[in-house]
Amino acid sequence: MKLYLRYLEILFKSQLQYRASFILMTIGQFFVPLVMFASIYFLFEKFGQIEGWSFFEVALCFSIVHMSFAISVCFMRGFDSFSKLVVNAGFDRLLVRPRNTIVQVLGSNFEFTRLGRLIQSTMVLIWALLNISIEWNAFKVATLIFMLIGGIFIFSGIFILGASLCFFTVQGLELINIFTDGSREISQYPLSIYKDWVKNFFTFIVPLGIINYIPLMYLLGRGPYNDILSMLTPLIGIVFIIPCLYVWKFGVSKYLSAGS
């Protein structure tokens, strides 16, 4: 952990070297999701509601998914850009250092500029919460936090899976964006508006449904869901990362025996 902070320090210093680019990127990252959010806003302006969901309820869902995504993309940037590390053989360098590969890949990159994205989605969250009447209690506060944590872990898991793919091929990596960006785009709306196969995919394959549907219903006081269970469902996201780590480990062993 201490080592990771040292990595962050050096990355932060490096990124600050390019001041103009740093500021512009941060501002840009603020506006990218803002445009997406605006499109949701105009959609609701026209239709009023979608399948019984009001604008602010969807905004709540949107902000939670985007906050999780922003945080995980900050931390997981090393995995997100891992193909570069394989192509330029930087990964060889990591292997001759006496540390775990995961810490080192995490420490190889950090997108401080993605904080712009986080600020934007936090603002949407606050706006949404101010406009929805939720009877707050300790369970519900915990649920909200768990949803964020679960989301961060699921997105992180997807990033690790994508990076593991680089051990087998360095071609066709765009495919993984279907899972990262695609999952984010789809899960910014409550899952109930989609067809069954989409729902099933995002419940059983990439379990983003568990962070944005059941706990969301519970937060809004809808549906017959049990308090404790609803509160804990988002934590399944943490479990999702375990198989991803195993795939990573398998990938590393493959790399070792295949060479580059």
């Binding site: 990595y7 050096i10 053989a89 930087g90 360098r93 006496p98």
Partner: peptide, 24 residues
Amino acid sequence: FGQRSQLWADVPVMDSFELLRDIY
């Protein structure tokens, strides 16, 4: 590796050395 650097390009050499100290 003569053809590939192990130092962090954008920070002073000293910073790279200190990070290596912590890595090892």
